[in-house]
């Protein structure tokens, strides 16, 4: 557990839904302070991988090591403690509808008594201004647009200053301006606070802008692991197809 070592290490991960093998033998590591992107076609197991990395699901084989601690070996309490060190921003924001945006962000701080009560309102306002929602503090989640909800979800994920933030599909369903804003936000947060980001996405522009390294999944198997430049130069057919936005062969023939 050194400062330079990987913050997350996944070894030989295997996941099954009943008889269906969703992930098989997935191994990689995420370095401290990098923006690591998990990409791949829809249904390839990206979100399942994310759920395993955050301890929301347990693997059938393999392990996930978070800052030196193996998630899969922890009991329920140990896992809950470790999960406080992780921020998760969900695809739809997953805000609690009964609370205002501000209360949503304050919730982890209050629940875990992490910060001086005196400081909480200011910390909430600071997190909300980081994501550009300073004036939405007293609004209810259903009064927000999809992009705003997503940003509020990110503010809540960062509330307790976790060293790692997982972000599921940050730019899906957003307009290009908001999506680009979110990309810049991720880069600034990494730069200013040294947060490590693990991001699941399939937005090509966003990947090229923010990713340090990427992992590509295809039907539950790792097809590529490396930097974005390496990915663009890869001669793997599946990787090329992804970056060149080519549909599968049978669809090409049907369209002619």
């Amino acid at each position: 557990m050194t400062e330079d070592g990987p913050i997350i290490e996944v070894r030989g991960l295997e996941a099954r839904y009943g008889d269906v093998c969703v992930l098989s033998d997935v191994s990689f590591s995420v370095k401290r302070g990098e923006v690591f992107v998990i990409l791949g076609a829809s249904g390839c197991g990206k979100t399942t991988l994310l759920k395993h990395m955050t301890g929301l699901m347990l693997p059938t084989a393999g392990c996930v090591i978070h800052d030196g601690t193996d998630l899969t070996q922890l009991d329920e309490d140990g896992l809950a403690l470790l999960q406080r060190e992780i921020g998760i921003a969900f695809q739809s924001g997953a805000l609690f509808n009964s609370m205002t945006v501000g209360e949503n962000v304050a919730m982890p701080l209050r629940e875990f008594r992490l910060v001086d009560e005196e400081l909480i309102p200011y910390l909430v306002r600071l997190k909300l201004s980081l994501v550009g929602l300073a004036d939405a503090e007293h609004r209810l989640p259903d009064a927000l647009s999809g992009g705003m909800r997503k940003r509020a979800g990110l503010a809540r994920a960062m509330a307790a200053d976790p060293p790692v933030v997982y972000f599921d599909e940050p730019s899906a369903g957003l307009d290009p301006i908001t999506a680009a804003g979110l990309d810049e936000l991720i880069l600034s947060l990494r730069h200013l606070l040294g947060i490590t980001f693990v991001i699941v996405t399939h937005e090509l522009d966003s990947i090229k802008r923010i990713a340090d390294r990427a992992l590509m999944l295809d039907r539950g198997v790792v097809t590529f692991l490396g930097t974005i430049d390496e990915a663009m130069a890869s001669d793997n057919e599946r990787v090329r197809q992804f970056f060149e936005r080519r549909p599968d062969e049978y669809i090409m023939h049907r369209n002619i």
Binding site: V115, L119, L126, D161, L193
Partner: peptide
């Protein structure tokens, strides 16, 4: 400065 430090700035400004 980190974000909790930032929150202190907000507090003293208030």
């Amino acid at each position: 400065m980190d974000s909790r430090g930032g929150a202190w700035v907000g507090r003293v400004a208030e």
